[in-house]
């Protein structure tokens, strides 16, 4: 049940990203979902059932101590997020870099058709060679 899964994800946000954490989350989700279903079968509304299941959740800090799980600080969470975003940007840049020559070719054709200066536009390819490293530099520092 999505609400329960979201609840669990939120509660375990500061737990380390390992197999033990995954196991706790999966087991607790199973337990909560079973309980939720049983309450629905007894005639409670979705809201009531959800409310009861959540109110009987217990103390997550006790659970953490019991299992000996370290806490990931809020800083570490955002660091993780930052790392993920950096990786994403890196991947995007890689794609752009790979397409550099395609871009050059497209520009060549565009300019040539627009101006008709075919005799000159081939020079674009010549300029594009040293420009490639400048392009690279621009991409790297575009943040």
């Amino acid at each position: 049940m999505e609400t329960i899964r979201n609840y669990i994800d939120t509660m375990f946000q500061t737990w380390p990203d390992n197999e033990a954490t995954l196991r706790v989350k999966s087991q607790l989700t199973e337990l909560m979902e079973d309980k939720y279903q049983a309450l629905i079968d007894q005639g409670l509304s979705q809201h009531e059932a959800l409310g009861q299941v959540i109110s009987e959740f217990g103390n997550i800090e006790e659970l953490r101590q019991e299992l000996g799980m370290a806490e990931i600080s809020a800083d570490e969470i955002s660091l993780d997020e930052q790392k993920r975003q950096k990786e994403k940007k890196k991947a995007q840049r890689k794609i752009l870099r790979g397409n550099y020559w395609i871009i050059v070719t497209v520009v060549y054709f565009l300019v040539s058709f627009l101006t008709g200066w075919w005799a000159l536009t081939w020079l674009l390819f010549v300029i594009a060679v040293p420009f490639e490293s400048y392009f690279d530099y621009l991409l790297k520092h575009s943040d």
Binding site: L28, E56, F57, G58
Partner: peptide, 9 residues
């Protein structure tokens, strides 16, 4: 009644 976290622990 057992709390969910208590039971899991």
């Amino acid at each position: 009644a057992l709390k969910e976290t208590t039971l899991y622990s």
